[in-house]
């Protein structure tokens, strides 16, 4: 009995340490964002717990200052403007493609699917210079459409892979009986396959949204020169580059940029997890 108790205690202890390691850093940032600038540079955030109820050591000033700077609010809005159409576009393009690869007699579809999956691995760096030149030639640099198109292009391989997994797992008899009844591909896709795959579509939505919202690199390359379309990741990254005199702003700005994905995550955790699992486990 005693051995079981001790080993249980150790188990709980280890789990507690793990939980702390994963939780404390984020908690530290959150607390720091509520501390005034001069306190941040002289004492650690944990000292706030020495007098937890002395509210004067906390302040909303950091958040207020960040929000007053129009650039941060603008960046938040930009992130939304960039992310939402990217999600819609990726869905609109990936779904028919995944369906075609799964349920039509398209010649060479095995090869095509293989190619698509292979493209997941291409490092984005391979694409920047030519695509940038292309955008410049078309006059698209520094515009929102450029970012939508780029994010769609980059997100397609994984999207097709994910949706294909789901689509292909729909029982063959269902599809066959529908086509025997005279339904065309478009009807089958729109009226049967897609409604049945709503969980997968939802997962893809969440995935793509989070990926685009959190993206720094693509924005840096295609929108880096244009402040008016810069998303919030770029804005925060610039603050980090500042001399350290503005770190109190950095904490609040970082938290504001994280607030949306965090809320998304907490609300849609299940869908997100399902998406990951569908992409990585079989069936």
């Amino acid at each position: 009995m005693k051995r079981a108790f001790v080993s249980r205690a150790i188990l709980h202890g280890i789990i507690l340490l793990v939980a702390l390691f994963w939780f404390l850093p984020t908690a530290g940032l959150l607390i720091t964002s509520f501390r005034p600038a001069y306190l941040t540079s002289v004492s650690g955030w944990w000292t706030a717990f020495e007098h937890p109820f002395e509210l004067s050591q906390f302040t909303l000033k950091n958040y207020r200052e960040v929000l007053e700077q129009g650039s941060m609010v603008r960046a938040f809005v930009n992130s939304l403007i960039i992310a939402i159409p990217s999600v819609i576009l990726v869905l609109a393009v990936a779904a028919p493609a995944a369906y075609a690869l799964a349920w039509t007699d398209l010649p060479g579809r095995k090869f095509m699917y293989c190619l698509v999956v292979g493209l997941i691995i291409v490092p984005l760096q391979m694409t920047f210079i030519p695509v940038l030149k292309l955008f410049n030639a078309l006059g698209l640099s520094g515009t929102f459409p450029a970012l939508w198109l780029a994010h769609t292009g980059y997100g397609l391989p994984f999207a097709i892979y994910l949706l294909h997994n789901f689509f292909a797992s729909i029982p063959k008899d269902l599809i066959e009986s529908a086509s025997i009844d005279g339904a065309s591909h478009s009807t089958i896709m729109l009226k049967m396959v897609i409604p049945l795959s709503l969980p997968a579509l939802a997962s893809l939505c969440i995935f793509q949204f989070l990926w685009v919202w959190n993206d720094l690199l693509v924005a840096l390359i295609y929108a880096g020169g244009f402040r008016n379309v810069a998303p919030i990741t770029l804005q925060v990254a610039n603050l980090v580059g500042s001399r350290g005199q503005e770190w109190h702003l950095l904490t609040a700005a970082a938290f504001i940029s994280m607030s949306l994905p965090l809320a998304c995550f907490l609300a849609f955790q299940r869908a997100f997890v399902r998406g990951i699992l569908a992409g990585s486990l079989k069936g």
Binding site: N136, S141, G142, G225, G241
Partner: peptide
């Protein structure tokens, strides 16, 4: 005035290339 911050070289380059 456009304040480009530490990334001025990058920004300038991108704008030059974009014409």
């Amino acid at each position: 005035v456009e304040s480009a911050g530490r990334d001025l070289s990058i920004l300038l380059m991108a704008r030059l290339e974009a014409g």
